[in-house]
Design a protein around this nucleic acid. Structure first.
Lengths: 140, 140
DNA sequence: CAACTAACTTAGCCTGGCTAATATTCCGGT
DNA sequence: ACCGGAATATTAGCCAGGCTAAGTTAGTTG
């Protein structure tokens, strides 16, 4: 248990690389991809504009356009217009989209919960304590 | 700070989604991609066979073939043959590949170290303690 | 030696990124 | 009133990186 940032960086980097793989395969075979699920989640509290979605997901606008196109083709979101500014397109969940979001969330959480349940209580505590620090990374 | 696995799952899932984004952009603009760096790292201790690399990186063989092709085109790895079994191809670092690996590792670690240095000592401790638990996730 | 199995590669498809180029629409200054 | 620049999106074309299916070559076994 060293305080050396270099060593910590090494270990953290290895663990995160592994978790990225895990997250990717966790959703394999589910009705929406990881990115699509993530975007649907952004729409849960109401309509959003394209730029806002692109920023939140740290993606260029054209990338978000393509994602939304696919979600729209799948009937999970609908495009609308801003009454005050004809340039902006709004995006919102359809009823089906909301259902799908909840279903996928249930499946994902059930999966993670199973893995967490396999840990000891001490390990879960350690994760809970470290979460805020983990969340802080990358904000600089 | 709840012990409820469901709540922990929710929060952890959100944080990890964010970190995935972070890792992706951290390597943007570097001379090798995240996957290539990862593969180069596997070769650090000597030649490996294709199947072994594919397994370690949780990827199908054809995917690894393509990765190695690119690394070979870039002059970072070289293919060889197993004297005992003509079916297997071995892969090893070239001198340039080893140099590149070390350079990228320095850059990546410097980046993560800067971020870790921005945390408090308590936060770094929390991360260090939670690392083993984090690493355990997804092994089931 | 024929048939099966193992190790790779090739081909073709998908998602998900990016930049550059193209509408549209809005806004500000003359 | 209008012209030019800024803002919002989309389209087109490229690349990385994943997958499956099919093909090739080499060992293994009955």
């Amino acid at each position: 248990m060293s305080d050396d940032p270099a060593e910590l960086a090494d270990q953290l980097s290895a663990v995160l690389r592994h978790l990225v793989l895990l997250l990717r395969r966790t959703v394999a075979g589910q009705p929406v991809t990881s990115q699509q699920y993530s975007v649907l989640g952004s729409l849960e509290r109401g309509p959003r504009r394209m730029t806002s979605l692109a920023e939140e997901h740290a993606v260029q606008l054209p990338t978000m356009t393509v994602q939304i196109n696919r979600l729209q083709d799948a009937g999970l979101v609908a495009r609308g217009s801003d009454p005050g500014d004809a340039r902006v397109r709004t995006v919102e969940l359809t009823g089906e989209g909301r259902e799908r979001l909840l279903a996928v969330r249930r499946a994902r959480n059930a999966h993670l919960e199973r893995e967490l349940a396999a840990l000891t209580e001490q390990e879960r505590d350690a994760l809970a304590i470290a979460l805020p620090a983990l969340a802080k990374l990358g904000l600089g």
